Amino acid sequence: MNKSLLATEQISEAHRDLETRSTPQVVQALVDDQLHAVEAVQRAAPQIVRAVERAAERMLEGGRLIYVGAGTSGRLGQLDASELPPTFSWPPERALACIAGGPEALWRAVEGAEDDFEAGRRDVLALQATSSDVIIGIAASGTTPYPLGAFAAAREVGALTIGIANNPETPIVQQSEVGIVLDTGPEVISGSTRLKAGTAQKIALNTFSSTLMVRLGKVYGNLMVDVQATNAKLLARAVRLTVAATGATEAEARAALERCGYRVKTAIVMLEKNLGAEAAQALLDEVDGNVRRALGS
Rank of each mutant, 00 (worst) to 15 (best):
V227F: 07
S190M: 09
A200T: 04
L235C: 06
A238S: 12
L195K: 09
F208Q: 08
A204K: 00
L195I: 08
L234M: 09
A197F: 07
A197G: 15
G185T: 13
R237D: 03
G198E: 04
G185P: 13
V227K: 03
S192K: 14
L234H: 04
R240E: 11
V188I: 15
Q228G: 03
V227D: 09
N206W: 05
V225I: 15
V219S: 02
S192H: 08
K218M: 08
Y220W: 10
L216Y: 10
L223E: 12
R240H: 04
L223S: 14
T211Q: 12
R194E: 00
V188Y: 10
L212D: 13
T230D: 12
R240K: 00
V227E: 08
Q228L: 14
T230H: 14
S210Y: 04
D226S: 08
S190V: 05
L223I: 01
K202Y: 01
T199G: 08
R215A: 11
V239D: 03
G191T: 07
V219E: 01
V225K: 08
Q228W: 02
V214N: 06
R240I: 06
R194G: 05
V188R: 14
S209K: 01
V225S: 09
K202W: 02
T230R: 14
Q201T: 15
K233T: 12
R237T: 04
G198K: 08
Y220L: 14
Q228S: 12
L205Y: 00
L205S: 00
T207L: 15
L234Q: 02
V219R: 08
V188M: 13
N231D: 14
T193A: 00
A236Y: 03
T230P: 05
A200S: 15
Q228C: 05
S209L: 01
L216M: 15
T199R: 13
F208P: 03
R237M: 00
S209C: 06
S210D: 04
A232H: 13
K202N: 06
K202V: 00
L205D: 00
L205E: 05
G217D: 05
L234N: 06
N206K: 01
T193E: 02
